[in-house]
Design a protein around this nucleic acid. Structure first.
Length: 111
DNA sequence: AAGGTGACCGGCC
DNA sequence: TGGCCGGCCACCT
């Protein structure tokens, strides 16, 4: 309704929506989300949106990593290994800030 | 209004 | 996989 969106444009919500669809024990990459949005070149925007995801609670940002399976965003989480703990808590093994068997746990956003 | 930034990606060595 | 560079697009100051 109207154009009063306080903050968080539809762009961000779009990203959050995808991330929220990520099943437990699964992870995806920023590029995959960007591609699902139809903007594979805007992978950076996805990361940027994640930065604002702090305002959201239903956004498991810890399930989003870069294409290398590296916990690039772990640095932005509270603590130092919170992201890793969350992933391991879901059955995902993480070693040296890197997801083990990344491809195995990789989940592609499906509309 | 313009410039800088960023939780990236892909290509090349 | 690792390092470097350019591209890309929205957000922030």
């Amino acid at each position: 309704m109207s154009k009063k969106e306080t903050h968080t444009d539809n762009f961000f919500e779009r990203v959050y929506e995808i991330v929220r669809l990520i099943p437990e024990g699964k992870v995806t990459s920023y590029g995959a989300i960007a591609k699902a949005l139809g903007a594979a070149r805007s992978a950076r925007m996805v990361g940027w949106a994640m930065n604002a995801s702090h305002n959201m609670e239903d956004v498991p940002a810890h399930r989003v990593v870069n294409r290398k399976g590296l916990l690039s965003g772990k640095h932005h989480f509270e603590g130092t290994n919170l992201m890793q703990q969350l992933l391991e808590n879901e059955g995902i093994k993480v070693k040296d800030n890197q997801i083990v068997d990344f491809e195995q746990h990789f989940w592609e956003p499906d509309f």
